[in-house]
């Protein structure tokens, strides 16, 4: 699609939009209420894990419905060594990333060596997440079903080393992560991995005939995706301060991860971000309106998410981002 707008005007418009969004994101904690900050943190978190999942499914076409496994493992690993040994989140981060990469590589190795894909692959990933959920229920070292709790620090004092501080600190951390993931994905898409992943996604046999070692590149996608998701898990642990297997490894958590990119646009760079914002706006908007009306309806927010997913799958199978991008005067890169 070529835009009929003169390039100069399009560039100025794009620059202006990027500037406005950046300024808004950076200044949000300074001007917004604490509620707004927490909602924005959630949106950024969803954008980040969505981006991570998108690497595997959106780019390389390998469907995982068990990504809660990596959130949960990452969270539990970092929280476990913090609670028991007092090891801080920065060291825990490395361990979490290492373990999740290894687990991702293990699942990828099993699946891709045995040529499992599509429905079977998605079920395999769910099965591993469920095994972890049940397994952690029985691991007393991690608190079992009763949960693992982290000491809450001083909320008014910023302690970067211990990753303790006011909500704004978590917001900025998540903002940095989301921006970093966007940057990494943008870079990868323009390089060899992006071309090879998309080729594998579209037709694996043709990709092989063009000299692509598809096993190797699918492995890279899985390992990168699980490593990125592990970081979200560590964040989750130190932001939430409590972990329950039921909650963090649950199937619902995996679905929550995929909703953003699917709604925003599978395989696009900005899809996961647009989708996460749409989900949070609609979901929390509904909860907020209902709260104003004096009713607390558990499930309302998820029903809205389900309806959005349904409508998008029916009417916008490529997601919200492509039409939105055109409306904003961007040229959505065909990915």
């Amino acid at each position: 699609m070529t835009s009929d707008r003169p390039a100069g005007a399009g560039d100025r418009r794009r620059l202006a939009l990027i500037t406005v969004v950046t300024v808004a994101l950076v200044t949000l904690p300074l001007v917004g209420s604490s509620y707004l900050v927490s909602v924005a943190t959630l949106a950024l978190y969803l954008a980040y894990v969505g981006q991570a999942w998108n690497v595997m499914m959106g780019f390389a076409g390998q469907l995982s419905l068990g990504h809660s496994l990596y959130v949960g493992l990452g969270a539990y690993v970092a929280a476990g060594i913090f609670v028991h040994f007092g090891v801080g989140p920065w060291a825990g981060l490395w361990l979490a990333v290492a373990i999740c990469s290894a687990v991702g590589a293990f699942i990828g190795l099993l699946a891709f060596r045995l040529r499992i894909s599509g429905v079977q692959l998605s079920l395999l990933t769910v099965a591993f997440a469920e095994l972890a959920r049940i397994g952690f229920d029985h691991l007393d070292w991690f608190g079992g079903p009763g949960g693992l709790f982290l000491r809450v620090g001083d909320r008014n004092h910023i302690d970067l080393l211990g990753f303790r501080g006011p909500p704004a600190m978590y917001y900025y951390a998540m903002l940095a992560l989301a921006a970093g993931a966007l940057g990494v994905c943008a870079l990868l898409l323009r390089r060899r991995p992006g071309y090879y992943w998309r080729a594998i996604r579209e037709d694996e046999v043709a990709a092989q005939a063009l000299g692509i070692d598809t096993f190797r590149w699918k492995m890279l996608a899985v390992v990168l995706s699980s490593a990125m998701t592990a970081i979200a898990g560590v964040f989750f642990a130190f932001y939430n301060n409590s972990l329950f297997p039921e909650q963090i490894f649950g199937f619902g958590r995996s679905i929550e991860i995929i909703l953003g990119p699917v709604i925003g646009g599978l395989g696009t760079l900005f899809g996961p971000i647009v989708g996460a914002v749409a989900l949070v706006l609609l979901g929390d908007g509904t909860t907020e309106i209902l709260a104003k009306a004096g009713v607390d309806l558990p499930g309302a927010r998820q029903v809205v998410h389900g309806l959005v997913l349904l409508l998008v799958t029916i009417y916008l199978p490529n997601g919200l981002w492509p039409p939105l991008a055109r409306a904003l005067g961007f040229q959505p890169r065909r990915l």
Binding site: Y195, A199, A206, A207, R334, L335
Partner: peptide
Amino acid sequence: VGRTFQLVKPFAGLSVLDNAIVGALN
């Protein structure tokens, strides 16, 4: 050895240029 397929297997979602780039990266 480069090959084509009788039942063509284009990378349908990619542009013609990107299809060729994937090959050229070899």
